[in-house]
Amino acid sequence: MAEATGSDHRSPIRVLVTKIGLDGHDRGSLVVAAHLRDAGMEVVYTPPWQEISAVVKLALEEDIHVIGLSCLATDHLLVPKLMDALREAGLKHVPVVVGGIVPDEDEAILLAAGVRRVFHPGASLQAITDTITGLAETAFSADDLR
């Protein structure tokens, strides 16, 4: 669990939970967000239907450690475009995970595009939390001034 008091100068994990594309089904993203909060993370939670440019801007301005995308109705097809946009904005260091309905054939495409992990229906909240914690700890250092 992330240190919450800030007394050891470690930042709590900041994770962006968002949805791109056209679909708004957000039961999953809400449940995941609440669980991450309860694990001590700061969750920047957006309404659904974000533009890719908005997600990039958000990740940059909020200095996000890990991005979590929820995709249930084919919106995962846009994820490779998001990965390109993150790279162009100099945010290659921000790991991205995807959860939702992603057919196997498409999962391979997402992983090839740089997505770190795809969670399918039935994934446990603990597994999601552990993965995000691991990614944040290895990928992020506040004193990296780049």
Partner: peptide, 17 residues
């Protein structure tokens, strides 16, 4: 199509969707 649900014409959204 989802784009119609969301109130858009198809030329307003990503062709992939």
């Amino acid at each position: 199509c989802n784009s119609v649900y969301r109130g858009y014409d198809i030329d307003e959204v990503d062709p992939l969707l």
